[in-house]
Every structure is written in structure tokens, then in C-alpha cells.
Amino acid sequence: MPLLISGRIYTGRDRLHRYLAEGGKCPVELRDGALFHCGPVMRREGARWRVIAAGPTTSIREEPYMAKIIATLGVRLIIGKGGMGPGTLAACRQYGCVYAQAVGGAAQVLAARVREAREGGFVKEFGIAEGLWELEVDTFPALVTMDATGHSLYERVARASRRVYRDLTSSAESGAAAGHG
């Protein structure tokens, strides 16, 4: 399902997820909020920060931490790329959360939808890419690919591709191969 997200979202990636899952104090209120797996390019312009590029990063790296964060901090929307695993999918169902895919690499199109950016925390400690940024977005495009009822588009595509792989490498198909054997 296509979404256009408007309002406040927070960025976070590897270091933040581990920190939060291990019980670290979150400097912003994530309850009922949105977490964007992203390490942006930012530039300071006077007292303000400008987003130079901000596409999603691979979400599966946060799989060890995501379910815990959904459960304890009450995140309702995760935005990232590539989808997540069974732990996250189960937490989405149990606590009411969805995962949405943004287009990987579309850092300019997505940055253009950010109206305002502020430091949310850890920018000095974790660095610009790993810090927590507070972004005010306007019609930020994403697609819901893992819902709150246990459906994952990634699981469906992966299952189908494994089936095709088996067909392609069954002896009949391979025999038709280039005959280089």
C-alpha cells in the first residue's frame, strides 16, 4: 500500500538501535511515532541543519534489536529498505506497527520532502550518519510491505524466488545450460 507521510519522523541506524535495545534512554518520544532507518548527509548552515541526501539504509541489520524497540518504545511505523525478519514481523502484529519501504538510493527525491531537520540526539557521539535526527517531512513516499497482520511482501517474493531457483537448477534446466560442463 502506497503511503505519503507528513509530520515528524526520527532517523536511527545501527548504533542507536543497539543502544535502545540494550535499555539506553531515548532522548525523544518514540511512542506512536515513526523511525526511519537512515544515515543522512547533513550540512550546518548557520544555526540550522540542512539535509543534503537522505535515503533509507538496509533494515535487516536492525533485526536483532527491532522487536524489543517496538515492544518497549511503542514505535508504530518503521521506514527502511529491504524489509525485516520474523522477529520484527511478529512484533508488528503483537504491538500494532507496520514497516514501509522507501526507495533505496533515492536520496535526493526523499531529501526534498524534508521541510526541517533538527538534532534529536547522539549526533556528536555517534557521528552525523549514526545520530538521531528529527525530520519534519511532507508527503514522504513509501510502500507498506510488512503489515500488522503478519504479512510480508519480502517473504512472498523470497519464497517464489527460491522456487524458481530450484527449477532453474533442476537437472533438466541445467542440462539445457550452455553445455560447458
Binding site: P40, V41, I52, A53, G55, T57
Partner: peptide, 9 residues
Amino acid sequence: NDAPICQDT
């Protein structure tokens, strides 16, 4: 925009 295609440079 003369800016990075992707934020992961």
C-alpha cells in the same frame, strides 16, 4: 542539485 545520488557515498 549538484548533490549525492545516494547518502551512502
